[in-house]
Design a protein around this nucleic acid. Sequence first.
DNA 1: AATGAATGAGGATTCATTCAT
DNA 2: GATGAATGAATCCTCATTCAT
Lengths: 199, 199, 199, 199
Amino acid sequence: MLTLEEAADKRLLILQAALQLLAKHGFHGFSMKQLADRAGVAAGTLYLYFQDRDHLIRQLHQEIIQTFATHLLAELDISQPPAQQYRRICHNAWTFCRDNPDILVSKGQFDHLPPDVLRDHYKDAWQALGPLRTLFDQCRRNRLVKPLSNEVLVSLCIDPFLNLARKYHLGLVSLEDLDPEQVIDATWDAIALRPGHQP
Amino acid sequence: MLTLEEAADKRLLILQAALQLLAKHGFHGFSMKQLADRAGVAAGTLYLYFQDRDHLIRQLHQEIIQTFATHLLAELDISQPPAQQYRRICHNAWTFCRDNPDILVSKGQFDHLPPDVLRDHYKDAWQALGPLRTLFDQCRRNRLVKPLSNEVLVSLCIDPFLNLARKYHLGLVSLEDLDPEQVIDATWDAIALRPGHQP
Amino acid sequence: MLTLEEAADKRLLILQAALQLLAKHGFHGFSMKQLADRAGVAAGTLYLYFQDRDHLIRQLHQEIIQTFATHLLAELDISQPPAQQYRRICHNAWTFCRDNPDILVSKGQFDHLPPDVLRDHYKDAWQALGPLRTLFDQCRRNRLVKPLSNEVLVSLCIDPFLNLARKYHLGLVSLEDLDPEQVIDATWDAIALRPGHQP
Amino acid sequence: MLTLEEAADKRLLILQAALQLLAKHGFHGFSMKQLADRAGVAAGTLYLYFQDRDHLIRQLHQEIIQTFATHLLAELDISQPPAQQYRRICHNAWTFCRDNPDILVSKGQFDHLPPDVLRDHYKDAWQALGPLRTLFDQCRRNRLVKPLSNEVLVSLCIDPFLNLARKYHLGLVSLEDLDPEQVIDATWDAIALRPGHQP
DNA sequence: AATGAATGAGGATTCATTCAT
DNA sequence: GATGAATGAATCCTCATTCAT
């Protein structure tokens, strides 16, 4: 019998192969046979680890979302001042997207998953993003950022880095145009509540 | 023979059916037969208007991008002050995405198109967005906005509305959480160059 | 477009090929590809006429049952005396089974269909067997046959010919052992109500 | 090492699981994996007891036929008069089929076995049915039953009970319609040689 | 003896595309 | 121009069988 670890390894192996395939061809050309070949297993083996194509795709999405969430918080030091924590997270968002075009490109491919499935996955990701929620809550309470919901804040702070990374990988923006520190400043301006400013 | 107009009509009819189909099922389940059925034509007819599936998809993408660009500029009055023009465009972005979930959802499905194709389509869209480019250029020259490239500005100003609309349609944010005017303010803060501020 | 007749023809063509295949190999070795080959059409064509394998099989069963019912009544003359009608029907049962081993052999293969489906098909067949029901009812009323339900009568009169034909085709009985007239006599004795006999 | 008995036990365990599976789904859905699961053994274990799927199926058929033959003769007292022996056997046929729908339903599934295999199994069963052959022979010699071959007699006497039981399990006849004693009478009438009757 | 993960050939089904009408 | 029946390659998935443990 496989140990739990070995089984998990092979499962991950398959998911990683799936990610590469998906990034390269999109769902068009994403066949179970190709996936098996790339993962170095037989076609039938896929079905030992995943019920069917659909389940595999959903679990891949979940994995991707979780990976992204994990990396957002990398090297975060919650003892530091909020502004510093914020910069860390934004920086992580940027470098992660810059360095993982596969994940970035694949993300859009999942939009046709049933809405409830997507919702669940995103909710799960929020679970993993506890420190970020805490940070936002704190800043809002201390009147450092505007009284916007967390989801809105994410759309203003984090999502722009995904969008920029996509453009970067498409060659629509070059690294010269794009100083991450400047963009971090900009996103902070977007959400910051400045003294004397009328929200 | 069809008049040019009738031909254009049927072509659009097909593209619209395609959009609906794509939004509903993604490319999984997007078959030429289903498309024909939904468009109310025979399968063979599709091939009178489009060379093959791939061309149809590309043209659909182009159409979508153009439609979006067009709506961004709706009711824009370039004689008004920049800030007002800006609000108009942002408002358009929001309402268009809010009211056209099909387009919004489908957009991500095209990410696997060959990068050069995508690039071309986006470049074409920029052509159609002349007034927006002019606006950004003007503001930058007059030190109203930060010295960021247009692409970066779009990621900070326009894209957040797409992201928010997606979340809205997924049910992750409600309209209470989401006052567009506040978000427009926030995006303006993101790019605005404030007096006394060190860029 | 195909005329209704042509469509029906091709449908029948497929069903007949299916019957042959089923008789030869049972469901083991009954593949849609083989069926298509034998019917002389492409694999995909099967799905223009039948929803899927299962529906095809069910419709084949229905067809077989109906064909059998039809042949049971061949050359039946309801103006003749009951005993003569009875002999005709028994004779038909025998010759039909003797001459159509395919149908005979296939019949057993359907036993795993959902019971309600089987029931429906058999009920439909009874519809087609009106004259037989009338004959049985008449004979029972006139005290020519025992007061047994029609289903029981069939098990005593008709089914034995199916069983015998199966044995015949298996080589377990030869035609010397098996004079149909004698067997018809025997089945009649089974159900006949003789004067002075105590039922 | 297993004792012979334990080995025989496990073999039977597997065959019984196979019977249940076959009765429930037919050969469609009868997979070695499912069989292993239902029997509570590993997939590989099946191959310790049976060469392959085909051999397993054949042995199951043989087992079923033998079981049926055995039950036909249950509680048979060959010192009793022929008519009584006859009733006993018919009664056994009926109750066995009534109480073992699995066996009954499965029987038809084997019809696609190669004819020679089927023939062998049936011949073996006849071996086990010595007392029944003796009974028929005796009755024929004493002019109690018509001069029909044993196979024909079986089709007239025993097979009807199988047919009726199938109809019963399908819900086509109810127990009210179906008094076994009446049917036994009828089958006896079918084969009995009555004084003064011209065969 | 027993296991059960892995295999990969084979089967059901879908679908882009063609072409005779 | 329009049709839609037919095609058959491609795809998803199953399953009998093996073999290292």
